[in-house]
């Protein structure tokens, strides 16, 4: 983790309201895991007051160059969108736990709700390194012009299924409907036999399908539905959660989410959680 000035190498609108930002983290030498985030001060004033947590979208050409993908939703992201190349942002990170990729899994299902695609591309970069695997990405958006990262996922060899709420591209409906169709392609009963109840490290994880994993990020309603679906089909699902954050370091307890094990900090215990743990 580092607290540094990061030079903006690029800050570009890619589709309406969505921006890609490339930052060089001065002095950063560590590793960044997909699912980790950066806590960024959008401006120097007090409105907005707090930093904005943004997930790693992709590692750039060098280990200290990161890409972020963000949607302008309020004052903070609006300020960010106006920052120009060559100026500096105050950044803390990488923070949080990141996705935990199960080594035994070979079939990866990624479900992105809108800007939820942001951390999932970094994850897909990692998954693409696996041999003998399949990656299916369900890319949900409100309408066609809000679809992001379709090409990037395809370039990684993933099958990309587009879903829009208004049907302006791909299937009309919700990402969760398409997720069920994707899951049904796998003959879960035949492949599983008795369901695995241990992960590769030998830890009991309950009865989950050992080969198929679901990874997601998006709005709470979508995550709640995916949790239900994955529980039904006995699939292990991990989600990157979003919450308003104070310190980002686990100190202020402002960003907690309710889980079956009590309140947990999204910034420190997450932002990636097992979906089965979240108490929706």
């Amino acid at each position: 983790m580092i607290h540094t000035k990061a030079e903006i190498l690029l800050n570009q609108r890619i589709v309406p309201d969505h921006f890609k930002m490339v930052l060089r983290l001065n002095g950063f030498k560590g590793k960044i895991k997909p699912g980790q985030f950066f806590h960024i001060r959008a401006g120097s004033g007090y409105d907005p007051l707090l930093r904005r947590p943004l997930s790693l979208h992709r590692i750039g050409d060098k280990p200290n160059i990161i890409e972020l993908l963000y949607k302008v939703v309020g004052k903070g992201t609006q300020l960010m969108s106006r920052r120009s190349k060559g100026t500096y942002l105050d950044v803390i990170g990488p923070l949080g736990n990141g996705f935990k990729i199960e080594k035994a899994q070979r079939n990866f299902i990624i479900v992105a709700g809108g800007i939820g695609a942001a951390p999932l591309l970094a994850l897909c970069d990692e998954l693409a390194k696996f041999r003998k695997k399949s990656i299916t990405v369900v890319l949900g958006a409100k309408f066609a012009s809000y679809i992001v990262c379709e090409k990037e996922f395809k370039d990684l060899g993933a099958e990309v299924l587009i879903v829009t709420e208004d049907g302006s591209e791909g299937t009309k409906g919700l990402a969760t409907d398409v997720l069920v169709d994707v899951i049904k392609r796998f003959d879960l009963r035949a492949t599983t036999g008795p369901l695995a109840d241990k992960d590769t490290s030998g830890i009991t994880i309950g009865s989950y399908h050992p080969l198929v994993g679901v990874y997601t990020c998006g709005c709470k309603d979508m995550l709640k539905e995916i949790a239900k679906i994955c529980k039904y089909y006995k699939l292990k699902a991990q989600a990157s959660l979003e919450e308003r954050m104070g310190c980002g370091l686990g100190a202020c307890l402002g960003c907690v989410v309710n889980t079956i094990n009590g309140y947990k900090r999204v910034c420190k215990d997450g932002p990636v959680f097992d979906l089965s743990e979240i108490a929706f």
Partner: peptide, 19 residues
């Protein structure tokens, strides 16, 4: 165990918390 989330809200130059 603390209060029910959401626990933070930003106001103009201020921060509401209910930890």
């Amino acid at each position: 165990q603390g209060n029910k989330p959401p626990r933070l809200w930003e106001t103009t130059a201020g921060l509401l918390n209910s930890i």
